[in-house]
Amino acid sequence: MSSLHISISAEPVAHVGSFVLTNSILTSLIVSTILIGFAMVAKMSLRSKGKPSRFQAFIELIVEGFRNLVRGIVESDHKVERFTPIIMAFFLFILVNNWFGLLPGVGTIGFLEGSEPKISGIQQVNASEPKADQGTENVASSENSEAPKFVPYLRAGTADLNTTIALALISVVLTQVYGFSAQKFSYFSKFINFSSPMNFAVGLLETVLEFAKIMSFAFRLFGNVFAGEVLLAVMMFLVPVIIPMPFYGMEIFVGFIQALVFSMLSLVFFNMATIGHHDEH
């Protein structure tokens, strides 16, 4: 197949009742299965007596690393125990999703949707005209409008805006939950404060900021991962050998950094939410 396939949104690969199973959801499910399987294997391999195995040492390194990372920011044992699992889950879920998108076959193995294929390579890059049914923009176009469309079976989970929005929503909602549980109703004085006009305005800005966080989280992650996929796809299309390798290395690094950024920002927001205005000073 000599065409360049780029789609800004995830494409459906199956239908379960009315639910559309997209390739990014399929990837996310695989990633989730891998993570759950890893966690189960980890639990089974734990030995409290004798010399720990290398795998156990690796698991301990991960968990202890996360605890120390969180402890370095929140400095309270109670908060460490509370925040570490969710931060670890964010990091691992995003990291494995990001890296899964770099595996051979992901985004390149799929099926042709539609009638007989008459693909003749790159014709245009049309990102401004999403298709109404699936919201896809194929750089590879066909000579006629009824050309079959290539749909990969798998696509990085984080290269789908729905996934990143879901993660952002979880992060922001948890921020409010932690803030409320730590400060009770005084937490909301951050948003609704009638003590002075300035504080009221600041409260409104804080409210807007919470929604902006969702957008920021979601689009940052999605943008970086999707941009990486586009970059790799273009490089692979132009020079299929050797040249894409440094970009793969860079995308591995970007995938790690994005997972770390998302996790660390969430952690900082969680921590800030649990600290009152007076505590901040």
Binding site: I8, S9, A10, F19, V20, T22, I25, S28, L29, S32, L35, I36, F38, A39, M40, A42, K43, I59, V63, T84, P85, I86, M88, A89, L92, F93, P130, Q134, G135, G157, D160, L161, N162, T163, I165, A166, L167, L169, I170
Partner: peptide, 28 residues
């Protein structure tokens, strides 16, 4: 870019399951 509520909810549940599994089987 399709933003679909059902897919967002599915991913929230999916992540929740992963979070629960990682907490129960790995972290604790």
């Amino acid at each position: 870019m399709d933003i679909k509520l059902d897919q967002i909810l599915f991913q929230i549940v999916n992540f929740g399951v992963v979070f629960g599994a990682l907490t129960y089987f790995l972290y604790k």
